[in-house]
Design a protein around this nucleic acid. Sequence first.
DNA 1: GAGTAAGTTGTTAGCGCTCACAATAGTTTC
DNA 2: GAAACTATTGTGAGCGCTAACAACTTACTC
Lengths: 336, 336
Amino acid sequence: MAKTSARMPRLEDVAERAGVSHQTVSRVINNHPNVSKATRERVEAAIAELGYRRNTAARSLVTRKSQTIGVLGSELSQYGPANTLLGVEHAARDAGYFVSIAALRAVSREAIFDAIRHFLDQSVDGIVVIVPHSETLLALEELKPGVPVVAVGSLGSESVSGAMVDQKRGAELAVGHLIEQGHRRIGHIAGPQDWIDAVARAEGWSAALRAAGLEDNLVVEGDWSAGSGYEIGRKLAAERTATALFVGNDQMSLGLLRAFNEAGVRVPEDVSVVGFDDQPESGYFTPPLTTVRQDFEELGRRCMDLMLSAIENGDTVSTTVVEPELVVRRSTSAPA
Amino acid sequence: MAKTSARMPRLEDVAERAGVSHQTVSRVINNHPNVSKATRERVEAAIAELGYRRNTAARSLVTRKSQTIGVLGSELSQYGPANTLLGVEHAARDAGYFVSIAALRAVSREAIFDAIRHFLDQSVDGIVVIVPHSETLLALEELKPGVPVVAVGSLGSESVSGAMVDQKRGAELAVGHLIEQGHRRIGHIAGPQDWIDAVARAEGWSAALRAAGLEDNLVVEGDWSAGSGYEIGRKLAAERTATALFVGNDQMSLGLLRAFNEAGVRVPEDVSVVGFDDQPESGYFTPPLTTVRQDFEELGRRCMDLMLSAIENGDTVSTTVVEPELVVRRSTSAPA
DNA sequence: GAGTAAGTTGTTAGCGCTCACAATAGTTTC
DNA sequence: GAAACTATTGTGAGCGCTAACAACTTACTC
């Protein structure tokens, strides 16, 4: 109940107690070099005795820095985005920043503008964007917020830094594995094509296939959900065109597996399946899913690395790429 | 690039443009009643023309309110906590609050204290705690932060408000369903017993069983993960003591299902399984999982309701309960 | 020993806002 | 028509901090 009992101590109180000026105290808490050792110790003692904590609002008012990073996200309850957020949060808090979040209910230009304004009202020092739609980048380029922006999953924008997992490489890993096993007809269940990652995975699939001289004409689009995977699975079980399927994510894979099981299509004996993400549950699907692992937390940390060097060193736009990894389990084998 | 081009307009600039005093402008943006319609319109026009936005730091400095809610969470990437966070965020932003997060890497007294201090440094107006360990409450009672605290999953603390899904009721729903189907030997795979919810679910299971005159001696403890469900499933498949299992959450259920499938134990023919949570994927397990749905977003919204009434009306400690719902799918049937 | 430099500390102003109060204009009452 | 209100607007101070500059030490140079 420290708050109600008495006024919080401020710089002036500490100064008085230590027998110095408030400015000297300010120097101590900001680690300025020109403070004698004796004074510094005296001030630190006073700070400890009084339980002094710097008032963020006052500091922020004069420095025009809030020590806050805004994280703009959508689908933040999903495995990938949620863990990326966690990575950002950990790195930010370690670096002494606060993390403010704005979760988009729906992805639209207006909603993004709203959220950015929300952050600007808070005078955030930078914005991390975890909204993996192509549309987002456009919105960001249009409304240059005046603070550094790092976007997850983007690469090669002119005004926005980006950190991404190499999706194309991940797709190639998956398809390469299938080809190695001897598959020749490899289909793709893509994610919604307004997602950057979905497009990149589809491209990787296509590229790998063509590089091996195989056809890339078997593709269906889902919406990332297990439900859509299930619906597609039912159709595919009837058609049986491919001997292997590269699925855009693990959740659709789950639905697909379910549909195949119902239809009596055996995995991997009849059809091999590779997913994408490697959620913690994927190793316990029936059968355990071969998939491509993405390190989302690392991705989040990289975002903050970029952000910090933008804020503190004034670095300009740059990018970083995290490598994906193939995890082979039991949903893939050689074709019958 | 609004920031670099020129100074942001402030109250004074708006005042000048509208031909009034800065105080009148302040009245307008704070919706004070005593401003004539004409003046208000003139001021609003000036605000729009200048693109004025109030400086949060300055306001916060004088009011000692930050319009920020701190959300302290652990396991924030899991389905439940992540969606609760989302609920809190939406309700908070709708109410004009910023949402600052601190994610615990590990749950310990020290880590909780750290995070609370972090929030206090930011002078948050309130703290929502999504850390469903019994330990958390103790830490909060010890370190009274001086701002309203709402904890998810807690009920009946003296200094902390709580919002929870009625876990015991959920367990009774699940077990009741199993009993109705004719099961008599119903086991429980519990969550870690330092989690409030895990304890409540185990109690609900036990209470429902005893109320029906059945024995409540078949219980094993997992750690919420699919992996632990799998390990337990392997043991149980060998022993075959129960005809039905109430599992603490959906992820453990998935692992269990996997283990049973491997061991040739059929679900629901040989053993019925009920989960808890109803994640979006649960309907696509093999077989689709009967489970207890919790509305996590609603839970988060309720937290903010409590928080807002605590902040704005000075309401004291109170609680709110969200009702769970049984979702019957295909993992349960009458015993053989 | 005067002159200069470097290190250390203090003084003043002001960031942009809200609060308490003062002042003015407009309205009602008897 | 003066007194007593009410509605509307303005003035001044100060929230707690940092930045810029001023001032005072101490040490060193020639």
